[in-house]
Each structure stands twice: as C-alpha cells, then as structure tokens.
Design a protein around this nucleic acid. Sequence first.
DNA 1: AGACCTTTGAAGTCT
DNA 2: AGACTTCAAAGGTCT
Length: 387
Amino acid sequence: MPQLSSGGGDDLGANDEMIAFKDEGEQEEKIQENALTERDLADLKSSLVNESETNQSPNAAAIRRAQQGEQRGFAEKHREHLDGVSKHQDGGIYKTPTYPGYPFLMLPDPYLPNGSVSPSSNKVSVVQQSHGMHPLSSLLPYGNEHFSPSPPHLPADMSQKPGVHRHQSQDLSGYYSLPPGGVGQITPSMSWQGQPVYPTLSPCGFRQPYTSNLSSTPSSFSRFPHPLMLGPSGMHPTGIPHPAIVPPTGKQDHDQYDRGMYLKQEVKQQKEPKKPVIKKPLNAFMLYMKEMRAKVIAECTLKESAAINQILGRRWHALTREEQAKYYELARKERQLHMQLYPTWSARDNYEAGLSGVEGQKNKADWGKRKKRKREKLQDSGADNSL
DNA sequence: AGACCTTTGAAGTCT
DNA sequence: AGACTTCAAAGGTCT
C-alpha cells in the first residue's frame, strides 16, 4: 500500500492521505516515467484497438500478459516511490491544484474544526470535465441515480438498524446535502461549458486537444440540469441526496439525465421494490477511473471496460504522487462522509446481501462459490505461469 | 440474465 | 499479523 499510517489523529483509521512525497529530483524522474508510460499507452492502445478489431486474436492474451508483466514492474517501482513518508500533505497537496480535472468545491473540511473550509477545498477548479461526466461526479462517486426525480427507496439501514441517528451535519452539507431547489455553493463556474482547452496526452499516446465539448452529448450539462437542481424531489428521504444508495439490482445507469431513463427506472423500481443497497465508498483509484473513463473512451474510441481499465491503471501509476494524493484525499473524505451517513454500515453488508436481491439471501454458501471461482482462476493462472 | 474481464484500494474474513 | 477475498465502477463480451 502506498499509504502509511499518519498518526495524525484520523479517527477513520484511513491512512491513505499520508502519501509519501519525495523531493523534486524524484519528480523529474517521475516525469520521465510519465513520458515513457505515455509511449507505453500508445502501444497499449494500438494493441487494444487491434485486439478489438481482430475479434480477440489468440495473441491478445499473450499481449495482455506481457503488458501486465510490464505493468507489474512499474507498479512495484511506483510503490517504492510511495513507501517513504512525508508529512507535508496538508500544506502541499492542495497548494497548487495542478490537476485540471479535479472539481474542487467550496467544501467544508470535515477534518477542520467548525466545518471550516480547508485550503484544499476552496478552489473551484472545474476545468476539464470528462465526456458525459458530471462536474460533481468526483464527489458523487456512487452514481447519479440517487438524484433522479424519483426518490430512491429508503436505505436499508434506515429502516432496519435501530438507533441510527441520521443527522445532517454541517460537515455533510458541502458534499451531498445542498439546499433544496438550488445548488448552494455550486456557482455557475461549475459548469463545464466553455472551459479552457487543455492539450493533453491521450491515454493512447497521441497529443490531442481535450475540449470539454459536451454540448453534443446527451448527458450534457447544458441540456440537462444538474441533478442537484432537481430540488426536494431529488433528495434522499433523509434530506441528503446521497448517491451511495442504489437499487439492489446492481448496475447504475449513467445517463441519469435522460428522462427516459428516469421513467425506465421508475417502472423498474415499481416492479421490483427491493431494498436498496448502500454501496461501498469509492477508493482513490475508483474515483480516478470514474473521472477519466469517459476521456479515455473518447480519445481511444474504446468501449470495453476491461481494456479501458488497463489504460487507466497505467495512467494511475503514471500520475505524480501529488496527483494521486488528491484522489486519496477525496477518497478519504468519501469514506468519512459515508461513515457519517451510514455509521452502522459495513462492507460486510454487501458481502452478505449482494446486489442481486434480498438481503441475506446471498449467504456464505454463495460467497464460497465465488471464492472457489477465484481460487480456480488463480490456480489456472498459476498453471499458465508454470508453462 | 448474469458472470466475467480488468484495474487499485479499502475492508472484511480466515488462518 | 499477514494472507486472502470481496466489492466498489464500467460496459462489452461470453455463457
């Protein structure tokens, strides 16, 4: 793990914010690595494109394995980078928010007393938004479904776990519970229309001006209002439009702004009034993926998530520690918020309940099956390695 | 219809 | 304590 214990008094026990940063000389080394990685990405992309065009040629697996081997080497190297400990995060990470796509909001920092706005959050730096990506999506990592005009079901723990006091603290307000009928601190600058154009290296390795030309997309912010603008009807029954609550059917649909989708979901939810599942808070990499996926899709014209995730995994390793630290910090806040919203929730809940239906039906026997599958897979891969 | 793939990280379980 | 497993997102692909 790249994180080390902070000892900084984070009662979450989450230590991912403590990311080691070394001196600037190493940064240069990192930049060189980035350049190499971009070339690797070009190779990866071309191979992936070929892969998709040739309908998964027999060589694809071998190529993939080779890439993964290469990637592993990089990962280990990267982790070495992160092994050192530095304590200047608070002073350093957000001083220069160089990452253009990171949507900082005017968020009260739950770690600061009185819900004061931390230096880390007083930058509204929504500059580069991914294709079809909501500007707030990094802070709404559980999908947008929860903001649909049709309110989600009560969270399972709301009705099942007695004594769960759901307060809407000031700390939370900055994240999920914006004032009804308005977007609160969300200023017009949060719109990604007409944002500066950042020439970026595509994950495929070619330089391409990345424009947030989203007006043509169905989920464009210009055509559809922000889900948080939906007002009370889009609020969570608690008053907190928390996105972690999803129908137990599992997959979240992306084009939540599509009215047709709303209707479909309404019908679906009427048909299957199952208990919602509170999903895990997203980790740093998941947040990164969520933000960058659309961009990679647009630039590489890839759609297969497995391939995209490979690219994103590489890009993740190619990020500087500071860039990664932003996501670690965001993930930490996500966990904190999640814990505050659902103090009795445990990841175990989803182990047992699964997303497939009635809570508790996916019992340990089913879990054992998956375990077995995993083991079989690992054994197979081990056999592959032995060849 | 649902599992799988693919990634990293957090958190749970097991030994 | 450390190893192992599951889940989180995503959407095409496969069974």
